[in-house]
Design a protein around this nucleic acid. Structure first.
Length: 347
DNA sequence: AACTCGGGGAC
DNA sequence: GTCCCAGAGTT
C-alpha cells in the first residue's frame, strides 16, 4: 500500500523543483533566509531579493555584523519589514549564543524571533532532513482538498486539523524531499484556481477531486470591507536634498525611512515651523497617490515644499537631508520610493 | 480569537 | 477590482 508520501515523492523526483536558489546548497542559513523572505510572499517575487541578499551576506556572521539599516535597504520593497528586523536580530543571537552555528533543536529554533512552528519545521526538515511537519499556504491547500477539511484555515480548529494531517503524512525518511514535494505540488499543480488534478499523483484519493469540489477548499476568509485612510506627505526640498525621517519600529513601515506626514494641507506651515523652524517659499500639490494594503487603502497627497531658508534649521533634527542624485542606502516605503523617483525625473 | 503587518502576482 | 501568497507577533 503506497502512502501519501510515497505518491508525492515519486512525483517529486520527476516534476518537482530542484533548482531554486536556496536549494544549492541547502544550508540552514540559506534555507532560513529563504523561509523568512517567502513568508506571505511568492517565489517569483523573492528570487531577485534573495540573490542580492546572498551576495551581500553570504554567511550569518556577515549578516550579524551589518548595520540593520543596510539590511533593511536590501529588504526595501519586499514588505513585512518586521521580518527583516527579526532576521537581523536572530543572526546576532545565533552568533553570540550559538557560536555562529544555527541551532539544531526545534525548541531553540522556534524560540528565535520571526520563526514560528512552520518555519522552524521547514528549516530543520529542508536543511537537516529532520522529521518535522510544515503548514504553509501550499500545504494547507493540498491537505484541505485531500481530506475535504472545511472552514477557513485562519480558524484555530481548522488549523489544528490541518496540522494533524501534516504531522501524520510526514514520512520517516526523505523528509527534505517530502517537504519540498508537498510545497511544489501546491505551487505548481494543486493551485488555488484551475488545479491540474488530471496530473496529480494523489489522483482520486483526494476527496475534493473525487467529489469535484476542489474550488470549495480551503474555506475562504470571511471578507471585510477595507477602510479608507488619507495622509499628506511632504517633499521638503532644500537645494538638491529632500527631508526624510525614520519611522518608529512598530506600526506600518516600521524602521523604514519615509517622508514626513501631516493630516491635512492646512497643517503644513505649522509643521515646518515647529519641526524645521523654516517657512515655505512655495507649496505645490501633486496628484493623489492611492496605496492599497491588504487591510486598508491609503490616499497620499504629496506636497512639494520649497523652503525659504534652512540656515536656521534646528540642530537636533529627528530626520536627515538626503541628496536626490545619490542612491539612498536605507529602507524606503514603496510609495515613498515612487515619489522620490518621480521627483528625480522632474529635476 | 482578532488584529497587524506590504507588496505584488494571478485572475 | 479580488484573493492570497513557503506566517509570525501582538493584543
Amino acid at each position: 500500500m503506497k502512502t501519501f508520501a510515497d505518491h508525492l515523492l515519486t512525483w517529486f523526483d520527476l516534476h518537482g523543483r530542484h533548482d531554486l536558489p536556496w536549494q544549492q546548497p541547502a544550508t540552514p542559513y540559506r534555507v532560513w533566509v529563504s523561509e523568512i523572505m517567502l513568508q506571505q510572499t511568492q517565489v517569483a517575487t523573492v528570487i531577485p531579493y534573495y540573490t542580492r541578499f546572498m551576495q551581500s551576506y553570504p554567511d550569518i556572521a556577515r549578516l550579524a555584523a551589518a548595520p540593520v539599516d543596510e539590511v533593511l535597504h536590501h529588504w526595501s520593497g519586499l514588505g513585512y519589514y518586521a521580518r527583516c528586523r527579526n532576521l537581523h536580530k536572530t543572526a546576532v543571537t545565533v552568533c553570540e549564543q550559538y557560536g555562529g552555528e544555527f541551532p539544531q533543536r526545534f525548541d531553540d529554533v522556534v524560540a528565535l524571533p520571526g520563526i514560528g512552528r512552520s518555519t522552524a519545521g521547514a528549516i530543520l526538515a529542508l536543511s537537516r532532513g529532520e522529521r518535522h511537519a510544515i503548514l504553509d499556504g501550499n500545504v494547507k491547500r493540498v491537505l484541505a482538498r485531500y481530506h475535504a477539511i472545511e472552514g477557513w484555515p485562519g480558524r484555530t480548529a481548522v488549523a489544528a486539523a490541518l496540522w494533524d494531517k501534516a504531522e501524520q503524512h510526514t514520512p520517516e525518511s526523505r523528509v527534505a524531499d517530502y517537504t519540498q514535494a508537498i510545497m511544489d505540488l501546491g505551487a505548481t499543480l494543486c493551485t488555488r484556481s484551475r488545479p491540474r488534478c488530471g496530473d496529480c499523483p494523489l489522483g482520486t484519493e483526494c476527496q475534493a477531486y473525487a467529489s469535484d469540489s476542489q474550488a470549495d477548499y480551503p474555506g475562504r476568509k470571511p471578507k471585510q470591507r477595507r477602510p479608507q485612510k488619507a495622509t499628506v506627505m511632504l517633499l521638503a526640498l532644500h537645494g538638491n536634498a529632500v527631508y526624510l525621517e525614520r519611522r518608529p519600529p512598530s506600526g506600518i513601515w516600521g524602521g523604514l525611512w519615509s517622508l514626513p506626514e501631516v493630516t491635512s494641507a492646512a497643517e503644513v506651515d505649522d509643521w515646518l515651523q515647529t519641526r524645521l523652524n523654516v517657512r515655505a517659499k512655495t507649496v505645490e500639490p501633486w496628484p493623489v497617490l492611492r496605496h492599497s494594503f491588504s487591510h486598508y487603502d491609503l490616499d497620499i497627497q504629496p506636497l512639494t515644499v520649497r523652503l525659504s531658508d534652512v540656515s536656521r534649521t534646528v540642530a537636533d533634527l529627528p530626520g536627515a537631508w538626503y541628496p536626490l542624485d545619490q542612491p539612498l542606502n536605507v529602507g524606503l516605503a514603496a510609495p515613498v520610493s515612487k515619489l522620490l523617483a518621480q521627483l528625480t525625473i522632474t529635476h
